[in-house]
């Protein structure tokens, strides 16, 4: 009975992807077009590359670069974000700079960095870290600034030591915002991973695509592209799982808030005490922080 339900649910989600793949498979089945080889050939190629080719080695290379860049950017982004979120003066002073840095197309740095520092893995990890850093930083800042001022009052009234306050109050409370930043960063990081390898490399999944393109092995190009798609998908699915686990409390609170009659939820928000966050008193000087956080709000509620 329960199994039936699960199968039905899975069926409702899977039929369209299955249909799309089937249609592609059939329609391309007899394709003579050089640029659009049959899907069956592409799959054969992927399997061949996975069993006899260098697919895993390339994936590993890409993933290591990605992971190093992302993790370093994450740590740096959270640390600087908490500092800048708490220290208004410094934040205001650097805000135009941050604004500029995060809206610059970081990909523009690829030729310079790779030409100067070589085609090895380090410059690639650096570039990935560089593009991941900004959304994490800005969302963390936003999260710290959006903290319920009551939290600080509690910490002061109960004389919570500052490090404990940071680790057990600020960090968890900011985590939803940090996760948003990270989710955006993952998307950008994967793009940078591909670009940095396609620009110039000797390994990596982007390199595999590039090399195939240069020798007109079009089926390999398709194979590599599909593998990158799957890789991106797995990374984000994995991240969502981690996020669900870390933010279980958050989703519960949100769900309860939304389940209530909307009018009541709104009234509750309105009943919250006036914000006395010294930061928000200077709303004008406010750093126009990453509006991307709206995306998350939408996402959280949507899911």
């Amino acid at each position: 009975m329960n199994i039936q339900k699960i199968l039905l649910g899975a069926g409702k989600m899977l039929w369209l992807p299955a249909l799309v793949i089937a249609a592609w498979w059939v329609l391309s089945g007899t394709s003579e077009n050089f640029y659009f080889p049959p899907l069956s050939k592409i799959f054969e190629k992927i399997i061949f590359q996975a069993t006899e080719g260098a697919l895993w080695e390339n994936i590993l290379f890409s993933m290591i670069n990605f992971t190093i860049g992302f993790v370093v950017a994450g740590i740096a982004g959270i640390l600087f974000g908490i500092v800048l979120g708490s220290l208004r003066r410094i934040r205001v002073a650097v805000s135009p700079l941050l604004d500029f840095m995060r809206s610059m197309p970081q990909i523009a740095l690829v030729p310079v960095v790779i030409m100067a520092f070589g085609i090895g893995p380090e410059p690639k990890a650096f570039l990935i870290g560089f593009i991941c850093f900004w959304p994490i930083l800005l969302n963390t800042i936003d999260g710290v600034r959006g903290l319920n001022p009551q939290l600080l009052e509690v910490a002061k009234a109960y004389r919570i030591p500052y490090p404990v306050y940071l680790m057990r109050m600020v960090l968890p409370a900011t985590l939803p915002a940090i996760m948003t930043g990270m989710r955006i960063a993952i998307g950008l990081g994967v793009v940078m991973m591909v670009v940095s390898e396609m620009y110039s490399s000797t390994r990596g999944i982007g390199f595999y695509i590039l090399q195939s393109q240069e020798s007109y092995r079009i089926t390999d190009v398709w194979a590599g592209t599909i593998v990158i798609g799957l890789l991106g998908y797995l990374i984000s699915v994995g991240f969502v799982a981690v996020e669900r686990y870390l933010l279980a409390w958050y989703y519960q609170v949100e769900r309860r808030r939304l389940r209530k009659r909307p009018a009541r939820a709104a009234a509750e928000t309105a009943a919250a005490p006036p914000v006395r966050n010294p930061a928000s008193e200077h709303a004008k000087a406010r750093l126009t922080a990453d509006k991307d956080s709206e995306v998350v709000v939408a996402t959280r509620k949507g899911v």
Binding site: Q150, L151, V154, P172, A272
Partner: peptide
């Protein structure tokens, strides 16, 4: 140390990521 406070906005003053008992013991740790 001699003064404890119960705030107006209990939603904002309890930490949703801590269990009830943790919320209570937390200040004692400090």
């Amino acid at each position: 140390e001699d003064i404890a406070v119960v705030f107006q906005d209990y939603r904002g003053s309890l930490m949703p990521w801590m269990r009830v008992a943790e919320n209570v013991t937390f200040p004692l740790q400090g």
